[in-house]
């Protein structure tokens, strides 16, 4: 089952993705983060927040493109969601396949381990002691995941728990399913 997901992901990347030099991508993202750090005067908590918000804006839109291009159906379980994310979504958008690990026994939490991260190539965090402890450089991914999953009715808490830029062993994002959203029409809106 997971083998066919992998080939689906690779086919999607090969045939349906317009490709661009990843260094332009890395440098563009880098200049945004550097600008945020300057604008918020090294307040890394704020920078993380801004990156997450930007990611969220991307996430709510990126899901449409993903569903249209990949034609995957509804996921039956959170585990299936994790497989589709790692083998198809990440492959299609970033040409990487993070590993799914540490699935909790209740099936509601898992980690994505990124062995390579195109956002953070050649990045070294600034030398002040705060950056190493506070900045999640690739925090935009957290927002993207949260926004995209919200659009498919999954309320998920997403956060980085480790980053090789900070000296941790692996770049790890933890996803926690809070609840499944019902299709409700908010009061006062059509």
């Amino acid at each position: 089952m997971s083998k066919s997901l992998k080939t689906t992901g690779e086919d999607l990347w090969k045939n349906k993705a317009d490709k661009v030099n990843s260094e332009l991508f890395t440098l563009t993202y880098g200049s945004i983060v550097a600008q945020l750090v300057r604008d918020y005067k090294q307040d890394y908590t704020q920078v993380n927040l801004q990156l997450e918000k930007m990611g969220y804006d991307i996430g709510i839109r990126i899901i449409e493109e993903f569903l249209a291009k990949s034609q995957v159906g509804r996921c039956q379980s959170f585990k299936e969601t994790s497989e589709i994310l790692s083998k198809i979504a990440f492959k299609y958008f970033l040409n990487i396949t993070p590993r799914v690990e540490n699935f909790s026994t209740d099936g509601k939490q898992f980690s994505l381990i990124l062995d390579e991260n195109p956002l953070a190539e050649f990045v070294e965090l600034p030398d002040d002691e705060k950056a190493n402890k506070q900045l999640w450089y690739s925090n935009v991914l957290v927002g993207v995941l949260r926004g995209a999953l919200e659009m498919v009715q999954l309320d998920v808490e997403v956060a980085f728990v480790g980053d090789v830029l900070r000296g941790d062993d692996a770049t790890e994002i933890r996803l926690k399913l809070i609840k499944i959203l019902k299709d409700e029409i908010p009061a006062g809106e059509d």
Binding site: K19, V20, F25, Y92, N95
Partner: peptide, 19 residues
């Protein structure tokens, strides 16, 4: 250099413009 999806770059660029 490896490659990424052009739409990923476009999303990041979009966010840059909005900011």
């Amino acid at each position: 250099a490896p490659e990424v999806n052009l739409s990923s770059l476009s999303y990041i660029f979009n966010v840059m413009i909005q900011y």
